[in-house]
Design a protein around this nucleic acid. Sequence first.
DNA 1: ACAATTATTTGAAAATTATAACAAAAGTTA
DNA 2: TAACTTTTGTTATAATTTTCAAATAATTGT
Lengths: 213, 213
Amino acid sequence: MKTLRVPEATVSRLSIYSRFLERLDKNGITTVSSGEIADGVGVSPAQVRKDLAYFGDFGTRGVGYNVKDLLKYTLKILGLDQEWPLAIVGAGNLGFALCTNRSLSIRGFRIAGVFDNNSTRVGKRIGNLEIKPLAQFPEIVKKENIRIGVIAVHTSLAQEVADIMVKSGMQAILNFSPATINVPDGIEIRNVDLSIKLELITFNLGLRTAQNL
Amino acid sequence: MKTLRVPEATVSRLSIYSRFLERLDKNGITTVSSGEIADGVGVSPAQVRKDLAYFGDFGTRGVGYNVKDLLKYTLKILGLDQEWPLAIVGAGNLGFALCTNRSLSIRGFRIAGVFDNNSTRVGKRIGNLEIKPLAQFPEIVKKENIRIGVIAVHTSLAQEVADIMVKSGMQAILNFSPATINVPDGIEIRNVDLSIKLELITFNLGLRTAQNL
DNA sequence: ACAATTATTTGAAAATTATAACAAAAGTTA
DNA sequence: TAACTTTTGTTATAATTTTCAAATAATTGT
Ligand SMILES: NC(=O)c1ccc[n+]([C@@H]2O[C@H](COP(=O)([O-])OP(=O)(O)OC[C@H]3O[C@@H](n4cnc5c(N)ncnc54)[C@H](O)[C@@H]3O)[C@@H](O)[C@H]2O)c1
Ligand SMILES: NC(=O)c1ccc[n+]([C@@H]2O[C@H](COP(=O)([O-])OP(=O)(O)OC[C@H]3O[C@@H](n4cnc5c(N)ncnc54)[C@H](O)[C@@H]3O)[C@@H](O)[C@H]2O)c1
């Protein structure tokens, strides 16, 4: 079998390349070189080629890559040749923003359920989606065949929600809270790190200030 | 001078440790070992010690670390011993959620300005913050001494907003859009990667499905 | 058809980052 | 005070990831 040990960083960059290719395609550009991709997304050309080489030979020497084809390949590799239903728990401000965010649907995601346990929110609609009580989570994710759960509740409740998600059969969890979530082996947990990114910035700005740069 | 070449991953983890220490402190726990921190945040004890060692000797052999002290040190290292005013551009759903997000202020951030160029939004209030026209961005960030800008506009407008931020003297930019933003050297750009994280998940779930795991 | 050009492949080297092992230090107990 | 336990700080090792450079292949223009 082909090597399947792909660095995570490579997959992340593939996602970036893919979105860049989408833009090129929309602008009617048909061919692109590794160098142009590199410039467009801010990495080295060698990196681009190396990353793509994990998955096959997509380019033509002397020419570059066919935009439409490479886009199709990257989407396929990322699993985006199918629709992914999502279940969001927490219909607060972030949950609302996520539900109304168009860019998710563009790349094959569909919010198939939003849940809250606050009775003032349950029953309300976000777009054409009705906020359901958390109690219905297991039943709905089963019916809708949802494998990915999204945590958008307050930090202190995130672990509790994660446990429910695991019990309901979620295979992956995307966590927006700054809490560290523990899940059993085999369940994939990913964090969207607003706080970490901000604190990386303050760390660096702090250094800079200390050195008067 | 001390070694200042700290891996970025180390700083990210420091941010996580710091938040974990905050929780311990709130629960009245006074001492903690590298192993306990490791368990709490899901890394190895060796990693914790190695990370902390970049910044000094904070622990006592045979005992562990003093929670209050280590928390104070981590905050100091991360630059969180001062207040950081932020300027958010884009008062849409995400911008609104960010403005009302309490967990930012807990760690020393303060939203000092929200901007939009849509006249139906400008002038409205979010909490006790008034949405200002984008035209006032340069003047307000100067007055408020803001060094960090936050991009919460639609993907296609993100670069344009970034350019304005750079021109207005921002030293760091936190970008929530999936766009790749180009900035001059010396300006720090960080992305909060919702899309990338989701696509890492679908990549892995796709693999799993392909192998019937 | 052939040379010149361009850009991918491929594999090895370098750099970075993480893991593991261990000696030193502090506290505890007899 | 001396042995013993615990846990750190540090050094060495291993793994991963990125960068570099040489080889190869395809296309374009003459
Ligand atoms: N607001 C942002 O821009 C932002 C950005 C990144 C991360 N975050 C994080 O996302 C989380 C949510 O933020 P928010 O601003 O949306 O908060 P919020 O208070 O507006 O929303 C939380 C929602 O979760 C619901 N909830 C609470 N417990 C629940 C449970 N057990 N089951 C189901 N629903 C439950 C609440 O009723 C509420 O509607 C926080 O951890 C925050 O730090 C927020
Ligand atoms: N909604 C989410 O949960 C979420 C999560 C992560 C990332 N994002 C990304 O964040 C971005 C914003 O998402 P959103 O849901 O808030 O969109 P939105 O459409 O609700 O808000 C965008 C806001 O930006 C304003 N705007 C547009 N151009 C502007 C300009 N040049 N200057 C100032 N203001 C301007 C608009 O008037 C609008 O109010 C998108 O790129 C989205 O992909 C959204």
